[in-house]
Every structure is written in C-alpha cells, then in structure tokens.
C-alpha cells in the first residue's frame, strides 16, 4: 500500500492552490489582451506583443527580481500595501500566486488569441447588422467560439505554474507550508544527502500530476 506523507500532502495541496488561483487571476487580463491583439490594430502593437511575451523568454529569476522590486516590502507597490494596509506580499503564498500568474500569462494570451483570430469575421459582422452591441458580441460569439483556446490556456498556465521555480524562489522564497511548491520541495530535498527517497517520491507525484493535467486538457479540448 502506497501512502502519501503529511509533508507531501502539504506541498501538493499548496501547489494545486497556487496553480489554480494564479490561472484564474491570469484569465481575465489574458482574455482582454488576447482579444485586442487578435482583433484590433493599434500603434505599438508589436511592442505590446513583445512585452507580453517577455516572461516566456526572460530567465524566470529575472521576473522574480522585477517582482521583488515592485511588490517587495520596500518596492514600488509593495511599500504602499505595507504602509497603508499593513499587508506583506513578498514571501507569502500570494507572492507565489503572483509569480505563477505572471509566468503563465503569455501562454494564456497566446492560446486564447489563436482561437479568437480563427473566428470567422463574417459571424461578427452578421451579429453587428442584427444590432448586437460590442459587449454582447464578446459574450455571445467571441467567448463561446474561443472556448477551446481558453481551456488550453487554463491547462497550460496551470501546468506552467506547477513547474514554476525561478521567479517563485526569488520573490516568494522557499517556506514550507507557505510558498514551498512541488519544484521547490524537490530542490530542497536535492540539497539534502539523506532525502534521496523523498526526491524520487516527489518527482513521481509531479510527473503524475502534469500527465493528468495534459490528459484532461486533451479530453476537454476535443
């Protein structure tokens, strides 16, 4: 009988919590930006496009550094939160969520954008001639027809978040029960000569979850 230890359950639940909340947070801005990138032309579009893709190409630790500068206790935004609301962002699970959301964001935008640009413009024109306003078109045509991209985006950003390491360890630290997600737990155990077995167990759990996420996404996007 294979049993999962309390330690593994804590790590696993935290990883799932961070991954799901960060994907949900990343969803709304991704949808809007994907819509504008797919349907509108504006000055500086390629710049915005590049900016959005930065988390995909920059070393994750650089993103972690930027987040620390912005949301750290003395950071640009973090300072306001800390001095007015007495809320600390860096080194809490919220920091892990922010790091994951930022890293998953470009993947989310890419897949939704792909779906939106595949929508036949004639359908939107038809809706317009029939008197539908922009909001209605967005709700009744754009979203339903890009469902596939939205689901793929969810799964991609969810999986990215499960694997997020560099930005998280820089910005959220490696605090057990607070910010120690699966990859961080594996990293910690790799540092410890007596934890070889724990490493293998965590690796198996991580493979199992990622594979499950991919299979669910294949099933859903059919």
């Amino acid at each position: 009988m294979i049993t999962i230890s309390d330690y593994e359950i804590t790590v696993l639940l935290l990883s799932l919590k961070v991954a799901s909340i960060s994907s949900i947070i990343a969803f709304f801005p991704s949808l809007l930006i994907a819509y504008f990138l797919a349907r509108k032309n504006f000055i500086g579009k390629s710049f915005v496009d590049g900016l959005i893709h930065l988390p995909l190409v920059l070393p994750p630790v650089v993103i972690g550094f930027f987040l620390l500068i912005i949301f750290g206790k003395n950071g640009l935004v973090g300072d306001i939160f800390f001095s007015t609301f007495n809320i600390r962002i860096s080194f809490t699970w919220i920091a892990a969520v922010i790091a994951s959301a930022v890293m998953g964001f470009p993947l989310f935008v890419r897949s939704i954008r792909q779906s939106i640009s595949e929508i036949d413009p004639k359908q939107i024109e038809a809706a317009q001639t029939l008197g539908a306003n922009k909001l209605k078109i967005f709700k009744k045509i754009i979203i339903p027809l890009s469902k596939k991209g939205i689901i793929t985006g969810f799964i991609l950003s969810f999986s990215r978040s499960l694997g997020e390491f560099g930005a998280t360890i820089t910005f959220a630290g490696n605090i057990f029960g607070e910010t120690q997600t699966l990859p961080l737990a594996i990293y910690s155990s790799l540092q410890d000569p007596d934890s070889n077995l724990i490493v293998i167990r965590l690796v198996v759990i991580s493979i199992f979850i990622s594979l499950a996420a991919l299979m669910i996404s294949n099933r859903l996007s059919k």
Binding site: F91, G173, N174, I175, G177
Partner: peptide, 9 residues
C-alpha cells in the same frame, strides 16, 4: 513562528 522565518539558501 515557523511561518515568519524566511530560510534563504
């Protein structure tokens, strides 16, 4: 308290 300690590498 454990959750107020930041362990750095």
């Amino acid at each position: 308290p454990d959750n107020q300690i930041i362990f750095l590498k």
